[in-house]
Design a protein around this nucleic acid. Structure first.
Length: 421
DNA sequence: TCTGGGGTCCTAGGACCC
DNA sequence: TCTGGGGTCCTAGGACCC
């Protein structure tokens, strides 16, 4: 048996914990650069505002309904997430942290009333962390996702749905009312193709012949069908596998046309990517640099060059990665375009122990050299960017993103900790 | 004026091996 | 006229997730 615990409107709920006056008011949280709506309170959903709509398109609604908007505050959300995961993890021996606001528990070997367990989890997370949650319980992860969705959308469940404890007729009724698009693994491409052959509801997909689904849609969706029938094919992953690629990229607050404005952006992304790389104790063999013009301004000329730069030796050293990234940037940059986004992707990632030495060249510097350790420790202790590389700084900072509605880092920065009146 | 930033897995096809 | 039967590795593209 699996339980999926999921924070309701997670980013909005994080903001509300430190600003209770927002309770009952319509609230949205925006993506980086204040671009799109990525989290909505129930009041906002009720207004018909969809996930992912560009913020500027709802300016009128914002004004008319007094919607409160926040820029993304990942320092806050990441920390609140860690707290929530820790509390939930206390309820079962095995836990998978699936995303910033979702976690699976393996209930195998646990006895007792699962629905009651779900309610205990909800109460404790609400009391200890302040975040409201929903809990779905079922014999497979795919079904637990469905149960979680039902728990959150159907008030009768009071936040916890143990799907297979319901009478069969009731399960059928619920799954029949749910569009196939709600299934984990069925996205916007697959859903219309399924509908075309008469598979419209979750129930239809559950009852489809697995062999037929495999022939028409591949092995992944066949697995989904089996999961919907209660056979678990996806296991719980307790420790996340090391990343095989690491991407750092951002769009800019304004369009950039000059190489000298792109340099600090690329250096900054390379340096952040290097930090993530060292965090997982790996080295990269090559990296890709990319810059892009705005994909939305239909009439202007599109341009999205990229290039892969191999490193002389696999490395995790920020200096070498910045150097390689800037060489790549100079290769692909062309004047005359208005760039809106830039990024760095680390490739050929492996643990240093897996490396084959080069017979003919000097051994590379030891991975995670003393200098990089000092850098990481100082930034961990005194805050990000306390120590940084000159290449990632600039006089203009025109490449920084827009963040016009950001809340304080209530839990991770001394100056921002709320004081008690 | 204004449109995010990360990831994963699977498959098909080409190049190459014996 | 007739042209085998295995493999591996890599890449690009397509699908999905949050």
């Amino acid at each position: 048996m699996f339980a999926l615990v999921d924070g309701n409107n997670f980013f909005v709920s994080c903001e509300r914990v430190f600003n209770p006056a927002l309770e009952g008011r319509p609230v949205v949280v925006l993506s980086n650069n204040d671009g799109c709506v990525v989290a909505r309170s129930a009041e906002v959903k009720a207004l018909g505002i969809k996930m992912g709509v560009p913020f500027f398109q709802i300016r009128d609604l914002v004004k008319r309904h007094g919607i409160v908007a926040f820029s993304s505050n990942y320092a806050l959300y990441g920390d609140m997430s860690a707290r929530m995961m820790q509390v939930v993890g206390g309820f079962a021996p095995r836990q998978e942290i699936y995303s910033i606001d979702e976690t699976f528990l393996d209930l195998a070997g646990m006895s007792g009333d699962y629905t009651e367990l779900g309610q205990r989890i909800r109460r404790r997370v609400k009391q200890w962390v302040g975040i409201p949650t929903g809990v779905g319980i079922a014999p497979s992860k795919t079904l637990a996702k469905i149960a979680n969705h039902l728990a959150k959308t159907n008030p009768a469940f009071a936040g916890v749905c143990e799907l297979t404890a319901l009478p069969q007729q009731e399960q059928d009724r619920l799954l029949n009312a749910l569009p196939v698009r709600e299934v984990w693994g069925v996205g916007r491409r697959l859903a219309p193709r399924l509908e075309k052959i008469g598979i419209v509801s979750v129930q239809h997909l559950r009852d489809a012949a697995p062999q037929r689904i495999r022939k028409l849609f591949g092995v992944t969706l066949e697995r989904t069908v089996r999961e919907l029938n209660g056979h678990h094919c996806l296991h719980l992953d307790e420790l996340p596998a090391p990343r095989r690629q690491i991407v750092c990229s951002r769009s800019f607050a304004t369009r950039l046309t000059r190489l000298e404005d792109l340099v600090p952006a690329i250096a900054h992304h390379a340096s952040r990517a290097a930090e993530k790389l060292r965090q997982q104790g790996c080295v990269a063999g090559s990296l890709q640099v990319f810059i892009q013009t705005a994909p939305h301004s239909g009439h202007t000329l599109q341009h999205a060059p990229a290039c892969v730069v191999p490193l002389p030796h696999p490395s995790d050293d920020t200096r070498l990665l910045i150097d390689a990234a800037l060489r790549g940037l100079r290769q692909i940059f062309q004047p005359g375009f208005r760039y809106y986004k830039a990024g760095v992707m680390l490739l050929d990632i492996a643990p240093p122990t897996a490396l084959t030495g080069d017979l003919f060249s000097a051994p590379s510097a030891p991975a995670n050299s003393a200098l990089m350790q000092v850098l990481d420790r100082a930034n961990h202790r005194f805050g990000p960017h306390t120590l940084r590389f000159a290449a990632s700084t600039s006089r203009t900072e025109r490449w920084l993103m827009r963040q016009e509605h950001k809340s304080p880092a209530y839990t991770t920065c001394w100056q921002d900790i709320p004081s008690v009146a």
